[in-house]
Design a protein around this nucleic acid. Structure first.
Lengths: 204, 204
DNA sequence: ATCTGTTTTAATCAAATGATTAAATTATTT
DNA sequence: AAATAATTTAATCATTTGATTAAAACAGAT
C-alpha cells in the first residue's frame, strides 16, 4: 500500500499508535474502545490509525496476539523442559508470572475477557491438538499425585498467580487492601505459592 | 410513569426482557451488547426496552446489581458468623460457590470484567468501610496463621473456586479438558479445596 | 359494542463511531 | 531550489445504535 521511508520516524509514529492502542484496549476492552480514544491517547489524528492499520480490528488483533504471547508464551518452553523437576517448573512459572503481572496488572482482565470473543485461530500458540495433556509438566504432576486429575494443580498454580490481580481492584475499593500491602503480598507469593503447591502434591 | 395493569402479563413481558438482558449482557458484556440484541433475544420490539426500562444503562444496572448480589451476597453472612469455625466457613463457601458457578459459568467473566467500570456505589453491599478486615473470618484466619497476611488465604480460597471457570473455555479450546471431565473435577473440588486450604493454614 | 387505558409496534431521530478522501505539510532526493 | 515521495491533517461519509414518537392492537369495564 505504501512503502516505508524513514524507518525512525515511521517506527516512532507506528509505535506511538501501538503503544496507545495497547493502553486503551487493555484498559477498556475491544468494544468499549473508540478509535478516537486511541488517536487521542497517541496525540495523533484519527486518520493515522487507518493509514497505518487498515482498521480497528486489525489493530486489535495485533495487540491481542502480543498479549496472548505475553500471557501464555513463556510457559510453553518451561512446561516441556525435560531437565527440570516439577518443583523447579512451579518455581519458574510462579516467579515469572508474578513479575509479569506486577508490571502488567491489567493483563488478566484483558486477556481473559477478550479470549472468549476471539476466533479460534488464537490457538495458533498451541500447534498440536492437546499438547498440554501430553506435556512433561502434566506427566510429572501425574506421577506425583497419581489419584488426581493433574489439571487440578495446574489450575491452582495459575489461579493463585493470576487471581489476586483480578480481585485486587475489588479489594482495594472495599478498603481491605492498599496498593503497598498488595505489592508486598505479591512478592511474598513468589515463594509462598511453590510451597503451597508442593504441600498439595505431597498430601495427595 | 405508568401504572401496572395486569400483573401477570406485565411480569411476563418484563421478566422476558430481564431474562434476555441477563443472558446477553452476561455473555457479551455491557459495551458489546446492543439493545437490539436484547430485544431480539426476548423476541420483542426494541421500543419495549425503553418503555419498561428508561435506558440501556438502567437495565444494565439492574442486572449488574443482581449478579453482584449472587456473586458476593451469600458470602457476607457466612463470613461474619461467630458460631462456625474457619474450616466450616471454608467448606460452606466452597460448596456454595462451586454450586453457584456450575449453574452460572459465565458469572465470573461478567462480574469481574464489568466491576472495574462500575461506579463506586456498587460497593453498597459493603455498608461499612473495611468491614472485611474486621470480619470474623479474617480474624480467625489471622489466629491460625499469625505470621501471614490473612488475605493470602481468602484470595486462594476464592481463586481456587472461581479461577477454573475462567480458564475453562481456554482449556476446552486447547483440547485439554472436555466438558464432562471439567464438571467431574468441579465436584471433586468441593472437598479438595477445603483440604488444601486446611493444609496451607496448618503448614504456616 | 363502545369506551378507556394499557401494551406493542413500525417508523424515525440524533448522536456516536469506524472509515475514507483530498488537500496540506514535511522530508528526501536530485 | 525544484521535484518527488512520505506523512499528517481537516472535513466528510455511511453505518450503527440508543432513544423517541405517534399510531395501531389489545384487554377490560361499562
Amino acid at each position: 500500500m505504501k512503502k516505508k521511508a524513514k524507518a525512525e520516524i515511521d517506527l516512532s509514529t507506528e509505535e506511538k499508535i501501538k503503544e496507545a492502542a495497547r493502553k486503551v484496549f487493555t484498559r477498556k476492552g475491544y468494544a468499549a474502545t473508540r478509535t478516537r480514544d486511541i488517536a487521542e491517547e497517541a496525540g495523533l489524528n484519527l486518520a493515522l490509525l487507518n493509514y497505518y492499520f487498515r482498521s480497528k480490528s486489525k489493530l486489535f488483533e495485533m495487540i491481542m496476539a502480543e498479549k496472548m504471547q505475553q500471557f501464555f508464551g513463556f510457559m510453553l518452553p518451561v512446561i516441556n523442559n525435560a531437565d527440570t523437576s516439577v518443583q523447579e517448573k512451579v518455581e519458574l512459572i510462579t516467579s515469572k508470572y508474578m513479575e509479569l503481572l506486577m508490571e502488567n496488572p491489567d493483563l488478566p482482565y484483558f486477556v481473559l475477557s477478550e479470549i472468549r470473543n476471539t476466533p479460534d485461530y488464537f490457538m495458533k500458540i498451541t500447534d498440536s491438538g492437546n499438547f498440554l495433556s501430553k506435556s512433561i509438566f502434566i506427566r510429572q504432576i501425574r506421577e506425583k499425585a497419581p489419584g488426581r486429575n493433574p489439571f487440578h494443580y495446574l489450575i491452582n498454580l495459575l489461579g493463585m498467580c493470576v487471581f489476586p490481580f483480578i480481585m485486587n481492584p475489588v479489594l482495594q475499593k472495599m478498603g481491605a487492601l492498599d496498593e503497598k500491602t498488595f505489592a508486598k503480598m505479591m512478592k511474598e507469593r513468589k515463594t509462598l505459592i511453590p510451597a503451597w503447591i508442593k504441600s498439595m502434591l505431597e498430601e495427595d
